[in-house]
Write a protein that binds this DNA or RNA. Structure first.
Length: 603
DNA sequence: GCCGTTTTCGGCCCGACTGTTTTCAGTCG
């Protein structure tokens, strides 16, 4: 049982209880429980095995804790089974459609016996929805639209994909006559790895002009709603965008409100109430008096809090830190002076070493590492002989770029049993060894844990690249015990990478936060396979910021000399020189003279 | 169902928009 699966049971219970018209606060408790479980860095199943551990979580009481234990051991809980007798799970799934909530879905089930999307589509097309209480022709049409949208995909978009869209729309709205401030809020501003929709806050100009400019933009495929202060559209790429037009004096309150997270905002409202004030999207008020509204910082200050960077507004302890003046000074993109993971056309990259290095130099970095693949990753990956050959290749490039330090690196595959896909002799020729998983992602957790622990134990290893190997929306990644791996990596001095590829972002934010708590140090790298990908670095920094990381946590913020001192020395934590283990059986394969063009990027 | 310098009961965030209504429920964020 993964955390996501346990959370889904709670979410479904919440929907079912709501359909039954139960106490809304009881409903909320299940939703809150689902959120808490989903945001955990550790498997909730493991936590549930320890007494009192899950009860200590805010929002999880005795009752929910017992249900979590039921679910992780048996896959379900009595209440869920009981509810499913009257409301099948497939009916619950209908509430995921835009415009259909628990009440309407309940009506559909009770009056027309609609149980799934097929039933719903047939009924809507036959014009039978419009007859129902609370429905009408418009709702019927919106249901058909929602079904069409749902059949197109998950609805969430990678941050890196939404980013340029947001930039374009913000610039478009800034150009409207009289407009003063435009800012993208929501999960994009919090730099979440994927965004469900886009929220843009605007001040100045006339509401009419702003909304007109917005809904007529070329990206807009469908106008979902248009009002004085709020309009919603769906873009051609499926992304929903909301624009809010607010008075200039309320910009801070609106930005705060629409940036979220919802849970962070709820906490701020509670704090306001405790102090006899009230917070909404227009202002922080005391009675009829506005206390603060113009900037976020004003509002936080009036609540006795330091301004919280949006990336931390996830109820991960930021409220307490803001109150105590203990918020971390988060790492900035400009703090990074090196990129230590990239590929060239010698394996699955698109550019020559020289071209890549020139692009790195143009980006102002002080040093970099060239890290092509080892053999197991395919795509012409390196064996020991190829590593020997590359010593001269690297030396030649170093002569051409004397101002840039170039580390001779390799991304070495961790084989299924934890052995490294390179001989010790080959490893000793390198000055930057990354290890990573590119195969057997579905190993049982115990095997995967042993595999990773064995790999990082090797004294040549400096860092673990994209540690879990997950792909956002595509692959869950290896299921090893992250806590144990982080503890051991911290002890060995093996850095954990935050990989900035937009669909990896691995470690993810919650894992990076846990790794930091365990004492790990980090590198943030692009894993670039082409020149444009070198510019993905910011997305890795965003993850680091969401994890609360500072400049001091990240090794590639250090000048090269200090970096060399800081990385794990050969044999570190072993109390001896690098093991002279017998070299692994050398593959009886000669370096390929010519390699097939246009190799597929190894994932 | 959770929670507690307002504690073991009585609260629990709140407004906009839509569509169906004719004063408001449902949904969303």
């Amino acid at each position: 049982m993964t955390n996501a699966e346990v959370a889904r049971v709670f979410t479904r219970i919440a929907v079912m209880l709501e359909m039954q018209g139960q106490n809304p606060f009881r409903v909320r408790a299940y939703r809150e429980g689902a959120r808490v479980i989903e945001s955990l860095a550790e498997p909730v199943a493991a936590m549930a095995a320890e007494e009192g551990r899950i009860e200590a979580l805010r929002g999880i009481g005795k009752d929910l804790a017992a249900k979590i234990r039921d679910i992780v051991t048996t896959g379900t809980t009595e209440l869920y089974d009981e509810l499913q007798k009257t409301i099948p799970a497939e009916v619950v799934a209908l509430t995921e459609l835009q415009g259909l909530g628990p009440k309407r879905v309940k009506t559909l089930l009770d009056t027309l016996g609609i149980r799934n999307r097929d039933d719903l589509e047939a009924a809507a097309k036959a014009g039978r929805l419009r007859e129902l209480p609370g429905f009408g022709e418009k709702v019927e049409q919106n249901v058909l639209k929602a079904l069409a949208v749902a059949s197109r995909g998950s609805g969430r978009m990678l941050l890196a994909a939404a980013w340029p869209v947001a930039e374009t729309l913000v610039a478009h709205l800034k150009a409207v006559h009289g407009v003063k401030q435009v800012e993208a809020a929501g999960s994009l501003r919090r730099r979440k790895e994927s965004v469900g929709d886009l929220d843009i806050v605007v001040t100045g100009g006339s509401s009419e002009a702003v909304m007109e400019a917005f809904v007529t933009h070329a990206y807009v495929a469908d106008v979902l709603g248009r009002g004085e202060t709020k309009s919603s559209v769906r873009l051609g790429n499926g992304l929903q965008v909301d624009v809010r037009h607010v008075p200039a004096g309320a910009f801070g309150a609106a930005l705060l409100y629409f940036t979220g997270s919802k849970e962070h905002n709820i906490e701020l409202r509670k704090i306001a109430l405790e102090q006899g004030m009230s917070l909404n999207e227009y202002a922080l008020t005391k009675g009829d008096t506005v206390v603060a509204a113009r900037t976020e910082a004003d509002i936080y200050a009036a609540l006795g809090l330091a301004w919280v960077p949006p990336e931390l507004r996830e109820m991960v302890g930021e409220i307490e830190q803001a109150r105590d003046g203990m918020l971390p000074r988060l790492i900035e993109p400009g703090d990074l002076v090196a990129d230590l993971h990239m590929h060239t056309d010698r394996t699955d990259g698109h550019e020559s070493i020289e071209t890549m290095v020139r692009a790195v130099a143009e980006r102002g970095y002080a040093y970099c590492a060239i890290t092509d693949h080892s053999r197991a990753a395919g795509g012409g990956g390196f064996d020991e002989a190829r590593v020997r050959q590359s010593v001269d290749e690297i030396a030649a490039v170093r002569r051409k770029f004397p101002k840039l330090e170039i580390l001779h690196g390799l991304e070495v595959d961790i084989l299924g049993d934890g052995a490294l896909d390179m001989t010790d002799a080959g490893l000793q020729l390198l000055d930057w060894v990354l290890v990573s998983i590119h195969s057997r992602f579905d190993q049982p957790a115990a095997d995967a844990t042993r595999r990773v622990l064995a790999a990082i134990e090797h004294p040549a290893v400096r860092a673990m690249a994209h540690p879990t190997a997950r792909l956002i929306g595509g692959r869950p990644g290896a299921q090893f015990d992250v806590e144990r791996v982080f503890e051991r990596a911290a002890a060995l001095g093996v850095a954990m990478e935050i990989n900035a590829q937009p669909d990896r972002l691995d470690l993810r934010d919650t894992h990076a936060r846990l790794a930091r708590a365990k004492g790990c140090r980090f590198v943030i790298d692009t894993d670039a396979h082409s020149i444009p990908q070198l510019d993905h670095m910011r997305f890795g920094v965003f993850v680091a910021r969401r994890a609360g990381l500072t400049k001091a946590d990240v090794l590639n913020t250090l000048p090269i000399a200090r970096f060399r001192e800081a990385i794990r020395a050969p044999g570190a934590a072993h109390g001896k020189a690098p093991a002279k283990a017998p070299a692994r059986a050398k593959p009886a394969v000669k370096p390929k003279a010519a390699k097939a063009k246009a190799v597929k990027q190894t994932r």
